[in-house]
Write a protein that binds this DNA or RNA. Structure first.
Length: 930
RNA sequence: GGGGGAGUAGCUCAGGUGGUCAGAGCGCGUCCCUGAUAAGGACGAGGUCAGUGGUUCGAGUCCACUCUCCCCCA
């Protein structure tokens, strides 16, 4: 006979197969329909605020994996903090202006910015930026991220732009903005200055030449030489085209320099590089004539080999002796260190190039019009003709490239706008000390960067951005840079957007009656715009300070660790420049993904993984779990096998929840729940373990150890619930009468476990947690409509029964010994299914006591066997070695009950039920509805 | 070259103040179950804790150096 009808084999609609790619969009639609963001905010109305300020991603394409990780981590933090009782508004933002969008317009619309008027160009840029805001918004939502997606902040909005201009005005008012001639990275393809953080280093092959600069003055140590002796300083450079900009030669003050004679001429090089240099230029053999420290050469003049002007010997600590000659060609218009040295010595700063990188007339007739680094050969030829070229070769070295067009950049002295970092440095370092940095080394890292960073070049020669609100007098050329004037511009921009700067004449943008000191009333507008890093760096001023639901400072900034150099820093500089404290209390940095070979994922390497594709194959929940699989604070590997592993872990969680849901199908918490005191020891143990797990997982979350959280959760579900507790429960759940105390006790425990597990999962496995929650609500419809409206589980101290825990420590040892014994007996052929086994357990004091206290029937349930007998170890007879626990297994006596499948003595003894044991016979006879 | 990280089983990770600390989960192999079934259970194999020297009675655990890798900067 089939006894299935007399068993509690229940059903759930919760499917085993997740099919997340299809199910998640349905859940999303539900969230949207119930307006989950608003619901959650309302639930926390009046609660303390916790504010995570969204660092704006750049809206110029589909989101990539790093952005997906970033937003999901933010979402996890917000959901966790909300469940912990905080009101967590989340206003997402986008960075929308700047060169990447301009390039996007050229690429996607096939336009050339030189052919399009500024306003039309800006309109195109705006259109493209808005397109990607819309695209990315949907992609972030698809990942399950909760936020005020319909009201994001956008750097291109008039209110944002106006606030940014206002902030600029304040910085001007504080005297922190200046305009100056400085070498900056210049991309002559993009025709713009680039900030340090817009540079990428890549290998480049460059010429490497040795040039002899004839000394005009005579060093003291060579006073004895005949007046007509020819003495040269030997320099080495990889940028011949900067020779026209040479105005000095730098020596290391402490290093020793040698004067070497070859063929009647004298050459000066550093001692450590002498042999190497003379070999390289073929001036052998040579003879040492004299030596002196670099400092003694200071101020001597050499003659520029191409022009009739001097090149002066200067001293600089940065001159190293690991390469070159120890005499460093110094072109102040083409290098930052060179520039700084030049300022110190008063050397001329020459940069004979135009915006397109072509030599101007200042470089002489032979070079004018030629593009700088394509003119290397010309310069080399000229040097050769001048008889000063000693050698020419080539070298592969790391060289700065433009972050957008990937072409090599140059250093070029230009007029730029700067933020005076020196005056802010101390304040910034103080704020860094006060903030919390996760991981901790983030503090050291950013402090080092802040301590060393030079003044910040904030201007760009572009159109798509916020104008630098400055004016110039048309008659005397004086700069008009005043806080009140800027405030006036800001008020105009607030109404009409930054477009007004291009739409109107200067006279319309200035406050009425503005007059220059020279008496003139006609002005022209500055044409530079602000760097996009000013845009995002102002976000705390433009967003946190203005949105009523937000506040300054934010509790958390959370970005990829490249932002130590970028947004974390620019936000801090702007705050300091405005006289504010740091805009963040805590800063969390996360790492990046690498492929199986440890290489960073990048478009160029062609090893990128599209988050959307992962969503389509595995689902957003698997991706979200993957983000917590490894420690996000360092680099993370992304491989197919790891994704598979995470997908397996997901299935385990899902199936365990499904098992619990199934066996709760006939459970009504308000009627059937068993009071804790009356629950079985096994059930109380499960609840005890759950409380411990809650405590540990909460600690992990608070410490940002999300990967520990992940592994803790999974290990608990797999190794304790699934492998032990739920397995032990099956007999009870299936075979006992539906309303039996033992079964209801088990269900009560399952109910608590399922509720807490689902709550714990909610921040990370967001979709599935709510999917489970929906089914939980069928059991208890009084629960809120989404698990997102729930509180984080609190540890029930009263369930942390230390005596119970100690007992189960012993019992788990027994269980380990029992399963091993069962395995041995099974392999010897005693039985195939351990359920049909009999165990003899030999133990001592504490273990014995634990088993006795649990009771025979409960112990049988715990070990999942048909019968067992507990003995004192002394009864074991044969030598037990040094162990205090012996378990043996054999086939149990009696016949197999056809209902519960245990081998029991009572089978065949019960009248009317020849195939059943006593318990099953009783159950069947009382089975409801039979 | 400078600054910041990391290196424990195939994978992802645990291993306060040095002495059962060589662990977990997954994966893998073998077996069981078929009343969680495109599920579930059991057992098993796998690591000289990157390397080399120290300190110590004793070191993944402290010190020095080396190697490899990642990030940022020049």
């Amino acid at each position: 006979m089939d006894y299935k009808r007399t068993l509690n084999l229940l059903h759930t609609d919760f499917p085993m197969r997740a099919n997340l790619p299809e199910r998640e969009p349905e859940i999303l639609a539900r969230w949207e329909q119930m307006d989950i963001y608003r619901l959650v905010r309302e639930r926390r109305r009046g609660a303390p605020r916790w504010i995570l300020h969204d660092g704006p991603p750049y809206a110029n394409g589909n989101i990539h994996l790093g952005q997906a990780l970033n937003k999901v981590l933010k979402d996890i933090a917000i959901k966790y903090k909300t469940m912990r009782g905080y009101d967590c508004p989340f206003v997402p933002g986008w960075d929308t202006q700047g060169i990447p969008t301009e390039q996007g317009v050229e690429r996607e619309y096939g336009l050339d910015r030189h052919d399009v008027p500024a306003l039309a160009w800006r309109a195109k840029c705006r259109e493209l930026a808005m397109k990607y805001v819309a695209v990315q918004r949907e992609q972030f939502k698809r990942l399950g991220c909760r936020g005020d997606w319909e009201h994001p902040y956008l750097t291109l909005s008039p209110e944002y732009q106006a606030r940014q201009i206002e902030a600029f005005g304040k910085m001007v008012g504080r005297g922190l903005i200046y305009r100056g001639l400085r070498p900056v990275y210049w991309c002559y393809h993009c025709e713009t200055a680039l900030a340090d953080d817009e540079i990428e280093y890549a290998d480049k092959t460059s010429p490497a030449i040795y040039v002899a600069f004839p000394l005009v003055d005579r060093p003291a140590i060579l006073a004895d030489l005949p007046p007509n002796a020819q003495v040269f300083l030997v320099i080495w450079t990889t940028t011949p085209w900067t020779i026209p900009g040479n105005t000095g030669i730098a020596l290391n003050p402490g290093a020793t320099y040698l004067v070497l004679r070859h063929n009647g001429r004298f050459y000066i090089v550093a001692e450590e590089l002498a042999e190497q240099t003379m070999q390289a230029v073929g001036l052998t053999p040579f003879e040492k004539v004299a030596e002196a420290p670099g400092a003694t050469f200071e101020g001597l003049r050499a003659r520029h080999p191409l022009y009739d002007r001097p090149s002066t010997v200067v001293l600089a600590d940065y001159v190293t002796l690991d390469q070159g000659t120890g005499c460093v060609h110094t072109a102040p218009g083409h290098g930052l260190e060179d520039y700084q040295t030049a300022v110190r010595y008063g050397l001329p700063i020459i940069s004979p190039l135009d915006d397109q990188g072509r030599f101007t007339e200042q470089a002489g007739a032979a070079l004018v019009g030629k593009v700088c680094d394509q003119a290397n050969d010309d310069v080399v030829r000229m040097l050769s003709q001048a008889g000063v070229l000693l050698a020419a070769g080539s070298i592969v070295h790391s060289y700065p490239h433009c972050w957008r067009c990937d072409k090599p950049v140059i250093y070029r002295a230009t007029n730029q706008w700067f933020l005076d970092i020196d005056r802010l440095r101390e304040a910034a370092l103080g704020e860094i000390e006060k903030a919390e940095w996760i991981p901790q080394w983030g503090r050291t890292r950013i402090a080092g960067m802040v301590a060393a960073r030079p003044d910040w070049c904030i201007s760009r020669q572009r159109v798509w951005g916020v104008p630098i609100p400055a004016f110039y007098c048309e008659s005397c050329g004086d700069l008009v840079l005043r806080e009140d004037v800027i405030a006036h511009v800001a008020s105009l921009v607030a109404q009409a957007g930054a477009e007004i700067w291009w739409e109107r004449e200067a006279s319309d943008l200035l406050p009425p009656g503005t007059t220059c000191a020279c008496g003139s009333t006609t002005f022209r507008k500055e044409t530079d715009i602000m760097s996009v890093w000013i845009d995002s760096g102002c976000s705390h001023y433009c967003v946190l300070r203005t949105h009523p639901e937000l506040g300054f400072p934010a509790d958390l900034y959370l970005e990829g660790d490249d932002q130590y150099q970028c947004w974390f820093q620019t936000s801090l500089w702007i705050a300091c420049a405005l006289g504010d404290p740091a805009p963040f209390r805590t800063v969390v940095g996360h790492g990046f993904f690498v492929d199986e070979t440890g290489q960073k994922l990048s478009k160029r390497k062609g090893n990128i993984k599209d988050p959307a594709e992962i969503c389509n194959r595995y689902g957003a929940d698997v991706l979200r779990m993957f983000f917590t699989y490894a420690d996000f604070r360092s680099k993370m590997f992304l491989t197919e096998s790891i994704l598979e592993q995470v997908a397996d872990a997901y299935r385990r969680l899902r199936n365990t929840a499904r098992f619990m849901l199934t066996n709760l199908a006939d459970f009504n918490p308000s009627h059937d729940a068993v009071p804790y005191e009356e629950m079985s020891a096994l059930d109380r143990w499960a609840l005890l373990r759950m409380q411990q797990v809650i405590a540990r997982m909460t600690r992990a979350f608070d410490a940002w150890d999300l990967h520990l959280f992940h592994h803790e959760l999974h290990a608990f579900v797999a190794a304790e619930l699934s492998a032990i507790y739920l397995d032990c429960l099956k007999d009870t759940l299936y075979t006992e009468l539906p309303d039996s105390r033992l079964r209801r006790s088990a269900q009560t425990a399952l109910w608590h476990l399922l509720l807490d597990l689902t709550r714990l999962m909610a921040p990370i496995v967001a979709f599935t947690a709510d999917e489970i929650w929906e089914h939980i609500r069928r059991i208890d419809p009084s629960l809120p409509v989404s698990v997102q409206l729930e509180d984080w589980p609190a540890v029930r101290e009263e369930w942390l029964d230390p005596h119970l825990e100690e007992r189960f420590e012993h019992l788990l040892r027994v269980r380990d010994a029992a399963t091993a014994a069962l395995d041995r007996a099974k392999k010897e052929g005693a039985f195939t299914n351990p359920l049909e086994a009999h165990l003899d357990i030999y133990a001592t004091d504490a273990v014995l006591a634990a088993m006795e206290e649990l009771g025979q029937e409960e112990l049988k349930r715990f070990l999942i066997v048909s019968s067992l007998k507990v003995h004192d170890l002394r009864e074991a007879g044969q030598a037990t070695g040094d162990t205090d626990l012996v378990v043996t297994a054999r086939l149990a006596d009696g016949e197999k009950c056809q209902r519960c499948w245990q081998r029991l003595a009572s089978v065949g003894e019960v009248a009317g039920y020849p195939e059943l044991c006593q318990r099953c016979a009783d159950c069947v006879s009382q089975w409801p509805g039979l």
